[in-house]
Design a protein around this nucleic acid. Structure first.
Lengths: 301, 301
DNA sequence: TCAATAGTGTCTATTAGACAGTATACC
DNA sequence: GGTATACTGTCTAATAGACACTATTGA
């Protein structure tokens, strides 16, 4: 069992083998990370009395170089040889938002052969959730090409087709990204095929208006994942500031899920995840609300 | 908006840019796929009366070359330049099990800098679920080095540490892989750190006995994912043959979840996912059981 | 007859949805 | 006082756990 002494068919020990190993033998793809950076921000108040509406935002970058020049892409970049995937993702996050204390999660790795016209590129997508109050400068006011877009996500059509032993489920989803200046739109058909016992999920782009590469699919995937995970985990709190009211928390849930919730049920559901403080909101033009903070211990109570 | 005419800072159109693009500019990592191929098989019957016990199996390959020569690794291989990640995974699956009609899902991409001593290798892991009755030859009887191992998964320890604003949750998990000849064992500490609002998950290998690379972590990740998904999706049916009894189905759930279930509640839970046939088991030494088949339509009833 | 599994009925506890109703600041 | 939000109580429906009970075969 002495690892140092084991020899392969050429009679080499592991150390000898590694010294001779020629890393350039195989043709290698490039590897990038692409970041889906979400935040929730307050829109303008309509009146002194009303609470501001919240809106889900995604950070995109306008491409100044080929390919897809002039179109919008997710922030991202190549993984260098001396950094891990996570480190590359953190680096991209830091350069785009100038913060590093955020929730980040690997989502999916995109490896179609022709997804980049330059060369073979495999891209690992990460989702990051940012509390907007921690963003010192909201990207968009300086020379940088990064801008936040509001995310609208809607299901246009759902269809099931049943054959002898095959079942096909199709969902057509429209995503609109918009800000003051630009409106990007994409329509994606998500196809689930059960042929016998094989499940294949396929994302077909029907419309992709101003979105570079396969980033429309990445956005659709990420929003779906975000919506799923917000229901059964505590990731929503990564979108919240230190102190918040339960109504604000509910608004964040509503805006990411894209539907209204009943406050009684909502409060029961998240009751264990928060801790009361003895502070209240002020000058609201209506009854003040108690401020809460996240209780990271809730799973283990 | 004429895409063909857009020129970059060097005055190049996209077509001109792509012709000049030098793909060898950056140092590139190698990319591999690693397959977590699971199946459930019947162990020996104890008596004519008793039903055979089932067991969750994972396919591993004994390495005949450096590095980690003599140790066991997940089946996998390099992604070539003209195949997508999914295609590479399907190809590996086909070469290892000789079937291609199976459920397959991308799990996670592992990108630590030194995870492979040869060179920088990024590895995308896939999980496949195989119905054991569709395996013509169970790997292990021929010259091939692929073998099925029974999977034992147990939580040795759970700990939470609460500081001022930091919370650390640690879980120590032991996984034992065993077959007639070999026993592989690994102990992994899964660490979740909430520092302020950052969640980082880290997997630290404490013991890895005979398992190559970071494949112990991959196995831990995959078993956890399998256990989660079997609770709220229908993936378990990919482990079942065309026709099955509800007791067999329950055993598959029990063996992947690692716990016993109450049959009344179980039957209620999966009632919509199956369709009755009018066939029954025979010669069982006890009351015959009705045979069922999967109902892929259950979500949309 | 009995061992072993197949399958059902029902009580209970928990949870989510629905909605009515009360509370309280600030202009 | 009236508006807008904050927060609670309770009825109902759906679901999971627990467990007792009946059913059916082959040796």
């Amino acid at each position: 069992m002495d690892k140092e002494q084991l020899r392969d068919k050429q009679g080499l020990t592991e150390i000898e083998f590694l010294q001779k190993y020629d890393a350039s033998m195989y043709e290698r793809p490039s590897v990038t990370v692409d970041m889906l950076i979400f935040t929730v921000v307050d829109e303008e108040k309509e009146s002194y009395r009303k609470l501001p509406e919240k809106s889900l935002k995604l950070l995109m970058v306008k491409r100044g170089v080929h390919p897809y020049i002039g179109q919008w892409a997710l922030p991202g970049g190549f993984v260098t040889k001396d950094e891990s995937l996570d480190e590359a993702a953190l680096r991209e996050l830091k350069t785009e938002t100038n913060i590093d204390n955020v929730y980040m999660e690997q989502l999916y790795t995109w490896g179609d052969v022709n997804r980049d016209p330059r060369t073979r590129v495999i891209s690992c997508s990460y989702m990051a959730l940012v509390d907007s109050s921690s963003l010192k400068v909201m990207a968009g006011d300086d020379a940088d090409d990064a801008r936040w877009f509001s995310v609208r996500y809607s299901v246009l059509e759902e269809k099931k087709t049943i054959m002898e032993n095959d079942f096909v489920f199709e969902k057509v989803i429209k995503i609109t990204l918009l800000n003051d200046k630009d409106t990007l739109e994409t329509v994606i058909k998500v196809i689930e095929k059960y042929a016998g016992k094989v499940v294949m999920v396929d994302r077909e782009v029907i419309v992709s208006n101003g979105i570079a590469f396969d980033h429309a699919q990445m956005i659709q995937y990420a929003v779906e994942r975000l919506r799923n995970k917000i229901e059964y985990t505590d990731i929503a709190f990564n979108l919240m500031p230190e102190l918040f009211t339960l109504s604000e928390l509910q608004q964040v849930y509503e805006v990411t899920l894209g539907k209204e919730l009943l406050s009684a049920a909502f409060r029961r559901k998240i009751a264990n995840m928060v801790m009361e403080t003895n502070q209240f909101t002020k000058d609201a033009g209506h009854r003040p609300a108690k401020l809460f903070r996240f209780n990271p211990n809730w799973r283990y109570m």
